[in-house]
Design a protein around this nucleic acid. Structure first.
Lengths: 144, 144
DNA sequence: ATCTTTGCAAATGCTTTGCACATTC
DNA sequence: GAATGTGCAAAGCATTTGCAAAGAT
C-alpha cells in the first residue's frame, strides 16, 4: 500500500467512512493517471478494467467524497463535464492551468506568484483567501 | 439607444446576424443588472417582464451568440449553471472574482497584476496567453 | 423573396437519488 | 449486528436541437 492509499484509509477512518474495494480502485486509477484530468466517465471506464462490477453512480459518489476529503480537486474546463486531479496538500494552493484554445490541451504551471495579488485582496477588500483557481486560455507551444 | 445597444447592432451586422427584439431585450436586461452575474434562467425571467412571449431556448441561443461576439463573458461559479456578465473590451483581460465560501457572494477585483506571471508563462512554457480566469475562494468581509 | 430567428416540445447528457441487497467495521 | 456502501434503474436539471411558423433585411 503506497502513500496515497494510506492517506485514503486514514481520511476515511477519521470521518467514519468505510474503506471499500470501489474506493480503493477509484483512487488507484487516479494515482496511475496523474497529470491527466480525467472525467468521471473516463475514471469509470478505467476502474471497470480491474473492477468490472462497479457502477457509474458509485464512481460519482466516490469522487464527490474524495473531493470532500480534500484528496481530489474538481475542475471545470468548460467541456461539459467535471474533471478530477489529485490534490497536493503539501502545497498551500492548487496550481494554475494553461488551456489551449486550439487543441484543448491542459497543462500545469509550477510557479504560483500570486502572493502580492492576494495581499492586495486582503488589504483592499477584506477578503481572506483560502484557495484560488487560475486558468490561462491561449495557444500552446505546438499550436502557436 | 445607448452604447451597449449600438455595439450590439454593429457586432450583429458585421457578422450577418439580425437585430431582433429578443436580442435587444436580452442585452438590455444584462445592462440593467451590471455586476450581478445572472444565470440564463434568471435572465429569461427578467426578459419576460418586457417580452412575455420569449422562449427559454431563445435566451440560451442569444447568450451563446453574445458570448461569441465578445459582448458577454460566461462564468462557472460551481453552482450548477452558467452565469453571464458584460465584457469590458476596453480592458484587455477579464477581472478576477472573489467567491465567499460561506455566503456565496461573488465580487470583483479591480487590480489585475498578472503581468509577471504571464511573462513567465510565455518564457517557460511557450504558451501565448489570450485571456485568463482567476477565482479566489475564501471568506468575505462580512463572513470573516 | 430569402435567409435568419423564434417558440415549442422533445431530446440530450451529465449527475443525483431511491431502494433493496451487499459489505465493512 | 448495525450502519454504511453499492448497483441498478429511474429521476432531475441545465442545456441543446428539430422543425414549422414568424420576422428581419
Amino acid at each position: 500500500m503506497n502513500d496515497g492509499m494510506i492517506s485514503l484509509k486514514m481520511a476515511l477512518k477519521k470521518n467514519g467512512y468505510k474503506l471499500t474495494s470501489q474506493r480503493k480502485a477509484t483512487l488507484k486509477t487516479i494515482l496511475e493517471n496523474q497529470g491527466k484530468h480525467l472525467s468521471t466517465e473516463e475514471i469509470f471506464v478505467k476502474v471497470k478494467e480491474s473492477n468490472p462490477r462497479i457502477g457509474l453512480a458509485t464512481v460519482y459518489r466516490t469522487l464527490l467524497l474524495l473531493e470532500e476529503l480534500g484528496i481530489l480537486i474538481k475542475h471545470n474546463f468548460e467541456d461539459g463535464r467535471y474533471r478530477y486531479e489529485l490534490s497536493h496538500p503539501d502545497q498551500d494552493h492548487d496550481h494554475h492551468h494553461l488551456i489551449c484554445l486550439k487543441c484543448g490541451e491542459v497543462s500545469e504551471v509550477k510557479e504560483d506568484l500570486l502572493d502580492s495579488l492576494e495581499d492586495i485582496i486582503v488589504k483592499n477588500y477584506g477578503f481572506k483567501v483560502a484557495n484560488h483557481k487560475v486558468k490561462f486560455y491561449g495557444y500552446c507551444k505546438r499550436c502557436n
